[in-house]
Every structure is written in C-alpha cells, then in structure tokens.
Nucleic acid binder design. Structure first.
Lengths: 214, 214
DNA sequence: GGTCGGCTCAGGGTTGGCCCTGAGCGGCAT
DNA sequence: ATGCCGCTCAGGGCCAACCCTGAGCCGACC
C-alpha cells in the first residue's frame, strides 16, 4: 500500500469527516480536511490530492463553488461528490461543475473506497439511482454563459454580420437587410470566419449559440 | 456461480460475438445472440437478460433502435454499449436512448466482466475517456423528446442522413462516414428536404433542434 | 412473375458560400 | 500630411449544396 490514493475530505460536519476517515482511512491516504469553501480550496491547492470527497452543501457556498475555485487556481484533481442529497438538481449542478462522480452517504465503505479508486483513475461513478438522474438529465438541459473575450476581435459591423450569418441568413438576404452589396457581406463574413478561426458558417452557428449570441 | 448475470450479445459480426463469448462466458451466462435490430429485440424480449451487450452500429438500424424496440415491447433490461467507435455523438446517442454504459472493444475482458456486473446492479459505467464525453456533454447539450409526427415520412436511411446533415456534416464527410457515395448522400438529402418541405440545411438544423433530434 | 419501394449510384445543371486580390472613401491619429 | 483602419465594393475562381432525371439491385408483397 505504498502509493495509496491521496484524498481530501470536504464536509461541514466534523462528525461526518471523522466517520468517513475511519471508514476509508485504511485504504486511502487522507491528506487533508476542510469544512467550508475557502478552506477547501486552500487545502486542495496545497495538498494536491488525487481525489476530493466533496459534500454538496457547504457554508460559504456549495460544492460547485469549490470546484470552480480549484479550477481557477489552476489545479487539476478529481472530485467525487458525497452527499446526503439525492436531489436531481444537486447532482446535475455538481456534475456540471466538473465532478466525475456522485454517491450518497448511504454508500457502503467498501463501495466508497472502490468509487474513490475509480474516480482517481479517470472513471465516472454514480450510485445506481443517481446514474439514472445523470443520464436522464440528458433529457433537457441548457447551461451557462459569461462574457465575450474574442468577440472584441470583431468590428461593430462584423459583429452585426456575424449575428445574422449565425442565424442562417443567406448572403443575399443579409445584404438587402443591411442595404449593402452581397460582395460587402462576403468580405465581412470572410473576416469574421478568419478572425474567429472558423472555417464555415455551421461552425459559426455553433460558436454563436455556445456563447448565446443569437 | 449459480446465479450468474444473464447476458445477450448483439453485434453484426459473428467473429466478435464468439470472441466476446469466449472471453466472458466463464463469468456470465450468455443466453442469446443477435446480429441485427429485429433479431436483437426478439431475443431480448424472450430471454429477458439482465444485461444486453450492444454494438452501436447494426444492420437494419443501430443501437438506439434496439433499445427503443425493447422499451416499446415493455421489457426492462440494462444495456451496455460495446463499440469500436468512441465518437462523442455515438456515445451520446446511445446514452440518450437509455444505455447505462458505454465501453469500447479495446476493453480488457476482466474489465468487461466487471462492467457487466456493475451495469447489472444498476450502476453506470464508461471507459475513462468516454466518461469525459458524457459528463462534458452537460456543458452544452440539448436532448431527447418523445415521439415523431412527420419523422415517419422519412425512411430509416433518410433519418440517419437527416441527423448528420442537421449536425452540419458536409456531404463528403457524411458519405465516408456512412460509406456510401456523395451522390447517394445528395439523393437522400434531397428527399429529406423535399419530404419535410424545407429548402436548405439551415432550416433542417432548426427543424431538428426544435424537435430535439440532434 | 410482376410491381413497388427503398437504397445505391451517375450525369449534368444552377446557385450560393468562401477565398484572394485590389481599390476607393472617410475618419482619426501621429 | 501621411498613414492606418474600418466600411464599402468588384472580379475571378473553387467547391459545396441542391436539383432533376434516369437507372440498376434487392426484398417484400400480390
């Protein structure tokens, strides 16, 4: 057991942490604990564990906040959500944030140890019921967004053309809509694709929808 | 080994089936095989296996078609997709249809046996790389739906072409992907647009996304 | 056996997307 | 004033998208 999996526990209840530690401590190397978001990010970024056992509900934020914080710190690790909650939205939220697994605290300790090992090796793991949630959740989701970095590469006119292009307008329609010539539209379109390093309007449509620009 | 997991193999290559059977036969109970969609549905609905090992690409349809067929027959079982493909869309498609796992044929036999056991117990299982696909897909997907009204206007092949078209594949890519000529793709594409009374692929993309077909 | 529908392919055509080059015009800054 | 930049346009070229027609193969149905 020389190279055990290094684990950090994040849970706001000390009782839970010590319980988990005593259940899995013989099989993994618990290198740190935390009871809130700030502390979790700090411990994780200093200890650099293989796996983080992460409670979904925390003071000062929640599970996703921890994951985001660690990501922003440039640290790569695997998160396994460990929660009393089996509410679909908690599961989805933490998976979206980047957790690679989700088990409830009802899990047997041997199973938890196995789950940690699997997550550490890059696998995904879910409690049976939760697997259903996650997979079924492919039945209806729309996510995130933020600001626009490379959008500034485009001039005002180019952005205007870009939006209409992404929306599926033909060059001719677009030209009459902006009351410019088709040739001008082509020029702008070409510039847009070049600046965004895209090769055709389908990619542009995906690019724009990903960024909620249309 | 009295109550082994009962498994049905679905793959269009006899060689693959016998190979898999010899690799896992000592650990699970292979109660049936099939090499196309129809046969698969029949074997599964009569044998009622615990787990179906399902190839994604089949004559007469594909993996999702088998899952749908079995569901419509009112039979509950667990599907584990076993494919050479690790294309994200294949993974997503079969997961959407209801598969509880997806592994590639590069898997070691011991791992496959373990995967079958986990799926049988209701767990979800993915090859490490594919776990990434599935979970990352939460970062930008729009899925499923219910039934299809005018979708029945399209033949099976046309639906296949339609999905890829709507997804933005060029005719040439689509042709090599389906291993048919570009001319055949054109013919199908033309039929699709005519039958759906659409005039180009942008409208098709919108049509398909509205109906959550892609 | 004949018919019909689905899948496959071909020839030959028009239109549109996309690129490159080149160029005139107006604002704005060094 | 000279030059950069954004907006406008044109010519000319390539290729992909889309259409129509026609045709061979095969399995299903009558």
């Amino acid at each position: 057991m020389t190279d055990q999996v290094r684990v950090v526990l994040v849970d706001d209840h000390a009782l839970v942490r010590s319980g988990v530690r005593s259940e899995i401590g013989h099989a993994v190397d618990v290198v740190g604990e935390a009871d809130d978001v700030e502390g979790a990010v700090e411990v994780i970024t200093t200890q650099l564990p293989d796996v983080v056992l992460l409670d979904v509900h925390l003071p000062g934020g929640n599970g996703p906040a921890v994951i985001d914080g660690v990501r922003k710190a440039g640290v790569e690790t695997c998160f396994l959500a460990l929660s009393v909650s089996d509410a679909a939205e908690d599961v989805i939220a933490v998976i979206r944030a980047g957790a690679r697994g989700y088990v409830t605290k009802a899990i047997a300790s041997a199973d938890l140890i196995a789950a940690i090992g699997r997550v550490a090796s890059g696998d995904a793991v879910f409690s049976p019921r939760l697997a259903g949630f996650v997979l079924d959740a492919f039945a209806g989701e729309i996510p995130t967004s933020d600001v626009d970095p490379e959008l500034d590469l485009l001039t005002a006119r180019e952005q205007e053309v870009m939006r209409l292009l992404a929306r599926g307008y033909a060059y001719k329609e677009l030209a009459s809509r902006l009351t410019i010539s088709v040739k001008t539209v082509e020029t702008h379109a070409s510039s847009v694709l070049r600046k965004l390093q895209l090769s055709n309007r389908h990619q542009l449509t995906r690019w724009a929808t990903d960024r909620r620009l249309i």
